[in-house]
Design a protein around this nucleic acid. Structure first.
Length: 725
DNA sequence: GCATCGGATTTTTTT
DNA sequence: AATCCGATGC
């Protein structure tokens, strides 16, 4: 096996770098995954490091799986003992093993978004805090940020009233989590970092074990992750990190690309290796990407280059609105597929999830299949959530969110009044809802039975009885067996079957979940529930389907496609309005576009709409400011407008295309809002708007003396005075 | 206890 | 436009 074959000198240098800290700054498409996987293989095969002594962490399960697979291919041997996984899964494993040091049991569950938000709500209600003023979502965001920064409830800053509220809720939220024997996503990182920080014995154990620590997407690490990595690598100091500050797009979730600089400070002896050779894109695409990213301040410039040649120009397409944009995308893809292109070669990317709807509609209307990354399509389904809540409840009866979700699903005549009584009783008895339910299972023998009306008592008792039955099975049945038993006991299928098509769809999803559960007969329910809690959007991507992919720019990171459409390039969408007043956030918007552009291998379409709809209202919009940063010579206007409804309904599997409309030449706007221009008669004025109408550029100019004038750019002899960017 | 209606609110990005 | 929440009436 020659691990060095097919690697360029920089990649080889990274691969064979000796011991000590190594920082690999890897541009997009520069083969960083390859470097990481070959490095692991190299450590094992050439340096004789045992897999047991290696830790490699990624951000997504998909990346982890890919790495595992490639290392196995390279070595052709068993990697027993190798720790390779996502940050969250790695932390979960460590915390389960070291639970003796911690205030929760090793059987803890991981709460999902719903569970987390529910706990915040409960805490808010307990303190009688107005949920309108303090949105659970926003309060949770503050708590999450604190955890990522390793700030404990007691340490939460107290500079204004909101802080004070958050601190109180944070404190209570943590208590509620612990009383449910549950952790949230951030806890996994925070508890691990704190454990390693505070327990020298544990730190010693793991940092001695992990002779080599390797990290993917290092620029996306937050404080907690950085600290725990530092501790894990404390003994051997062999830490090999790969990242690209320009692709840091998770600042809002605590990621701090300055960790790259921090790394250089904390490990001054680090070898720094730069990977600039790009193996993915054409030079035109790389040039456009660099033109966009070079405008960000405080960065180390990279010059990406390729040997693939310049390639096709970027196609810039102006469309009327989101609908037309979607049609354009679908028609363009359909036409290329007609000419022999693989449907799976195409990807459509956008800034916000909401933008996917119109695109999906266009695909559906044309009867063309597509796949959508993320948005929790499967796990967000009501029926899937229901079944998982049942399993969670059986596994961990203290999980009140799950209990409340399923106690009356399907309907069991347990309504709000009964639940309120149950809660009051639980508080008075200083116990949990489930404990009372389980006791009520005895029926009249229960001391609580008399606390309810006859109907309510009976309904609760019945449910308690069901729960007791399932509890008894949990250690004897695999996840699928338990699931089937529950489905059967509650007659879930007839609950879903309301005679509608949707009911059948829903049952299909249940069957899909059964298939998933079947894979866990060896590993058991703990792993089943944990893995589901930690699936990422990218993980749900079905790579076998040869159809176009729709996804947010965030979800696109790490992926590549021959042809990429980036939709919705308007100011306010990308960059997003919510970032306007924060320079750091604006820099990140730019990086987001950079990530999007660099996903493209051969061809790139950039689309912007003249009108955008938000909240159901439509208003005019300006092209994204980033578009003007891309040099004109890299771009051509779309010269085939394939707009209009995909006119024929076609069989999806054939991928026949809609008939193309007659080609119409498309102009590019020469003038943009904010430009200063001079008119021969009216003097200086400012461009307020410019649009293409009937093959003509119409510019709105405001003149001090004359007021607003609409001019045809080709006729009015306008002179550019000063471009105000 | 449950279905229905109207109004408010939402959209930034996710492990 | 779509979803969530609370109030209302049966």
């Amino acid at each position: 096996m020659n691990l060095l074959a097919n690697l360029n000198p920089q990649q080889q240098q990274a691969l064979t770098a000796g011991t000590g800290p190594v920082l690999v700054l890897a541009g997009p498409g520069s083969g960083k995954t390859r470097v990481l996987t070959n490095r692991i293989a190299y450590l094992i095969s050439h340096l004789g490091v045992r897999p047991y002594n290696i830790l490699a962490v990624t951000f997504t399960n998909k990346a982890a799986r890919q790495m595992q697979q490639r290392v196995e291919e390279l070595l052709g041997e068993n990697l027993r003992g190798l720790s390779l996984g996502t940050f969250h899964a790695t932390c979960a494993r460590l915390l389960r093993r070291e639970a003796d040091y911690l205030p929760f049991k090793s059987s803890f569950v991981i709460f999902n978004d719903d569970d987390q938000r529910n706990l915040v709500k409960r805490a808010l209600r307990e303190f009688d805090i107005d949920e309108k003023r303090y949105r659970p979502h926003s309060v949770h965001g503050s708590i999450s940020r604190a955890k990522n920064e390793l700030i404990l409830p007691a340490e939460y800053p107290n500079t204004n009233y909101r802080d004070e509220v958050v601190a109180r809720v944070y404190t209570r939220y943590q208590e509620l989590l612990l009383s449910s024997n549950a952790l949230d996503f951030d806890d996994l990182l925070m508890w691990t970092a704190r454990l390693l920080e505070e327990q020298p014995a544990v730190r010693e154990k793991y940092s001695r074990r992990y002779e080599h620590v390797l990290v993917d997407e290092f620029q996306d690490t937050n404080m907690a992750q950085y600290l725990l990595l530092k501790h894990l690598a404390a003994f051997h100091r062999n830490i090999f990190v790969v990242g690209d500050s320009d692709q840091s797009i998770y600042r809002w979730r605590g990621a701090d690309h300055r960790n790259v600089q921090r790394f250089e400070q904390d490990f001054p002896d680090a070898q720094v290796i730069l990977l600039e050779h790009n193996y993915r894109s054409t030079q035109i695409i790389l040039d456009a990407a660099m033109a966009v990213i070079d405008r960000n301040p405080h960065r180390t410039r990279k010059s990406l280059f390729t040997e693939r040649g310049s390639g096709d120009k970027i196609i810039l397409q102006e469309v009327f609105d989101g609908r037309e944009e979607a049609s354009f995308v679908v028609n363009s893809i359909a036409q290329e597929v007609l000419q022999g292109a693989e449907p799976g070669n195409f990807a459509v990317m956008y800034r916000t999830n909401a933008q996917s709807r119109q695109l999906e509609e266009a695909f559906l209307q044309a009867n063309l299949p597509y796949k959508l990354v993320g948005a929790q399509r499967f796990y967000g389904r009501r029926e899937v959530k229901d079944i998982l809540a049942y399993l969670h409840l059986v596994y961990n009866p203290e999980n009140e969110t799950s209990l409340l979700r399923v106690i009356n699903t399907p309907r069991r005549k347990i309504g709000n009044k009964t639940l309120e009584d149950l809660r009051t009783l639980a508080i008075n008895e200083n116990t949990s809802l489930s404990a009372i339910l389980l006791d009520l299972a005895q029926g009249e023998g229960s001391e609580f039975y008399g606390s309810f009306t006859r109907g309510a008592g009976l309904a609760l008792s019945r449910f308690g009885d069901l729960l007791t039955g399932w509890r008894a099975l949990i250690n004897d049945l695999p996840p699928l067996g338990l699931m089937d038993r529950i489905l059967n006991d509650v007659d879930y299928q007839s609950y879903l079957d309301d005679g509608s098509e949707e009911g059948i769809d829903r049952w299909d999803n249940v069957l899909e979940l059964r298939r998933l559960a079947a894979e866990y007969s060896d590993r058991g329910i703990t792993d089943f529930l944990q893995d589901i809690a930690l699936v990422s959007d990218q993980d749900t991507l079905d790579e076998t389907a040869n159809v176009p992919t729709l996804m947010t720019l965030h979800a696109a990171k790490g992926l590549e496609f021959p042809v990429v459409f980036i939709a919705g390039l308007q100011d306010g969408t990308l960059p997003h309005v919510r970032s306007f007043d924060d320079p750091e956030a604006m820099a990140e918007e730019r990086r987001l576009l950079y990530v999007g552009i660099t996903r493209a291998k051969d061809r790139l379409y950039l689309l912007h709409a003249l009108n955008r709809s938000t909240y159901g209202y439509t208003e005019p919009s300006d092209p994204s400011r980033y578009l003007s940063d891309i040099p004109d010579e890299l771009v051509e206007g779309g010269n085939q407008v394939l707009i209009g409804k995909p006119s024929r309904t076609v069989r999806a599997d054939l991928w026949e295309a809609a008939s193309p409309a007659s080609p119409v030449p498309v102009l590019q706007s020469e003038y943009k809002a904010g430009m200063q221009v001079r008119h021969p008669a009216w003097g200086e004025g400012m461009v307020l708007n410019s649009k293409i109408q009937d093959g003509e550029e119409i510019v709105d100019v405001f003149f001090e003396d004359k007021g607003l004038k609409k001019l045809a750019a080709s006729l009015a002899k306008l002179e550019l005075v000063n471009t105000n960017q």
